[in-house]
Write a protein that binds this DNA or RNA. Structure first.
Lengths: 273, 273
DNA sequence: CTAATAGTGTCTATTAGACAGTATGTT
DNA sequence: AACATACTGTCTAATAGACACTATTAG
């Protein structure tokens, strides 16, 4: 045995276990807007995610989440920050660790464990010079008891995949997800996408993270639509306004020119409400 | 460029990035019972966790969570299973991924990223031949707005540490934890422990995971005490019974000999209630 | 009988759901 | 004027909190 820790460390063989590579994948979520033909109608909203087309093997020409290898001299949380900065030119994006995926064969090249992160942005804050090969896809999903069909659409291409849900333990309401169908997405990214959407759906209810997807000033109707698009269901106006009341603050600004009654603009009100 | 994926893979240099090691740490949580002197009083309950005393460097003679290196041919989730089997002789333990910690210098030996897992057991199901160096510690904690003092006690030794809580983003109710004081625990394990307790406190409210810590048949009073010990607050009887009513099923069994009215034993009732 | 927990009834306060109504801009 | 959304009032249903009460055992 060794006399002290220094001596131990000096003699330590760090290759006793075969080492591996790590990556981080980022599920960048935002809300996009599509104008309606009817000038009176307010524009339709979609949840949207950023995908990158791979221009090299493996999974050449398939879409995937932005990501990259963890540098050995880099904190784990700095890796997604670096990738986001590269992809969006934005700093101070909301980031949250999602899950670490580590099946043996998830990468055909070699053993890679990947920690995925959720990032939330207001798309309009992005200067629209996206990294080449990157594209926003609108997300639509149809959920049943057993599975979910997810459809991603960027206006030119449509990507579909199906996730199966099975109760993980008898004693949990949480599901274990498996990919049932997937032709167009690289790696286990359908899993990452759906896990992230589930997380967002949950957290929107008991945190204030939505405001990371909103501009500084917003109408309550727009905020409500963001909730609706994430939760995939209609909400009742009075209930929504009661729920949100102490999280927002009225401003002097008003949004007009929409073909109907103008709406007062609000801003996020800090504090634990 | 390469003609196809096989060709690419054959030529791939998996050492383009310097590789690293991964470990998993397990926060094994249970509830322990301490008899009261007064024969009428029901025994006091504590949340308890399993720690292992390190008998080698680094952190020689300090306590730490059970854990170990991820084998390169092993799925990430199989690693905690293997360690749990070694530590408890039990299979089919409830396991859930907690968080992946990856600061550069969390291990003095080399770059190590660690994925932590929560495991829940009914301590009484364990054959009490614990792995040498392993010991159960009762958990007590005192929480304020800014920090938490956690005290671990195995009857012989007492371990204290303090965790600081800061709001991570203006738009979240979630905290970022930092270790403020810690003398006795190895690595960043105070962080893992507190993150896990927080997670359990939350999840007990919207899942059925408590039942993983309960024996097959239990009295509602005991179940309530488990909730109280985890949430660190008293609950009102009628409210608790209403809340739990559709998750449990009455049995024909009764617990007697306690110096007061016997209680009916219940069992977990499967289904999403 | 007494101390202690088991278990229930019920009133009240709070919150969520539902729906109808009024308000106000643009074309 | 007509349409579409903004915004509010109010009734009802469901749920959570509080407290008091009855029940039953060992010693």
């Amino acid at each position: 045995m060794y006399k002290n820790e220094e001596e131990f460390l000096a003699a330590y063989d760090s290759n006793a276990f075969e080492k591996l590579s790590m990556t981080t994948d980022i599920l960048l979520l935002s809300v996009s807007t599509k104008a309606e033909e009817n000038y009176r109608k307010s524009s339709k909203k979609y949840m949207s995610i950023l995908l990158v087309k791979r221009d090299d093997y493996p999974f050449k020409d398939k879409w995937c989440l932005p990501g990259g290898f963890l540098d050995i001299h880099e904190d784990l949380e700095d890796c997604p920050k670096r990738i986001l900065a590269r992809e969006t030119n934005l700093h101070n994006i909301y980031l949250e660790q999602l899950y670490t995926f580590g099946s043996i064969n998830r990468d055909p090249r070699m053993r890679v464990v990947s920690t995925s992160y959720i990032a939330l942005v207001d798309k309009n804050k992005l200067q629209e010079k996206l990294h080449k090969n990157a594209s926003w896809f609108n997300v639509t999903y149809f959920e049943s008891e057993k599975d979910v069909l997810v459809i991603l659409d960027n206006g030119k291409e449509q990507i579909k995949f199906t996730i199966g849900k099975t109760l993980k333990e008898q004693t949990t309401d949480r599901y274990k997800f498996t990919v049932l169908e997937n032709d167009s997405l690289a790696f286990d990214h359908p899993l990452v996408i759906w896990s992230g959407i589930e997380r967002l759906k949950n957290k929107i209810g008991y945190t204030h993270i939505v405001f990371n997807m909103m501009p500084k000033y917003f109408a309550l109707g727009d905020l409500q639509q963001v909730y609706e698009v994430i939760l995939n269901k209609k909400l009742l106006d009075p209930a929504f306004r009661r729920m949100i009341a102490d999280k927002v603050e009225k401003t002097e600004y008003v949004k007009t020119g929409e073909g109907h009654r103008p709406s007062v603009l609000y801003k996020y009100k800090k504090g634990k409400n």
